[in-house]
Simulated scan of single mutants.
Amino acid sequence: MVGDAAFPLKLYLMRPYPGQNLTHQKRIFNYRLSRARMVVENAFGILSSRWRVLHRRINLHPQNVDTLVLAACILHNFLLAPRENVRMLEEAEQQRRNLPAVRHMGGNRASRERPVM
């Protein structure tokens, strides 16, 4: 994960080197880390402006949050070029029409069930 100096130092977090008198390599690292963080923040800003669910705390298991963000990215990319996606949607509709019809399906209502004795 990428963070700035405000985040605590953790094994899973990359943050810039502190201080003013840094070597050339450390300055380059800080610059590249800052650019990476800005790209991520900008991308999340674009996503959150389209999907309001990302404006507040998401009460889901972390694995499901990953799925939610991935779905938001996929939908975002899908909506960027709707004309290009029309062909794909038409092909999917054609495949759906070729499926055999389902016959004689009744509802699964409890009132139709016979009691077991």
Rank of each mutant, 00 (worst) to 15 (best):
Q94S: 04
C73Y: 01
N64Q: 14
E90L: 11
L75R: 06
L68H: 02
A92L: 03
L60R: 12
L89Q: 13
L68T: 00
Q94K: 12
H61V: 08
F78N: 05
L68Y: 01
D66W: 03
P62Q: 02
L60V: 03
I74S: 08
P62S: 02
R87Y: 13
Q94E: 06
E91A: 11
E91W: 05
R83C: 05
L89C: 14
E91Y: 07
V86F: 07
E93Q: 10
L68P: 00
L60S: 10
P62Y: 05
P82G: 08
A71W: 03
R83Y: 07
A92C: 03
L89T: 05
M88I: 13
P62L: 01
E91I: 09
N64S: 11
H76E: 03
V69F: 00
R87S: 08
N85C: 10
R83A: 09
L70E: 11
C73I: 04
P82N: 12
L75K: 06
H61K: 15
H76F: 15
T67L: 03
R83M: 10
C73H: 02
H76T: 04
E90G: 02
L68K: 01
L70M: 15
H61C: 07
L60N: 09
A81F: 07
A72K: 07
R87W: 09
P62R: 06
A92T: 03
V65T: 13
N77T: 07
A71C: 14
L68V: 00
D66E: 15
V65I: 15
L79D: 02
L75A: 06
V69S: 03
V69R: 02
T67Y: 10
M88C: 11
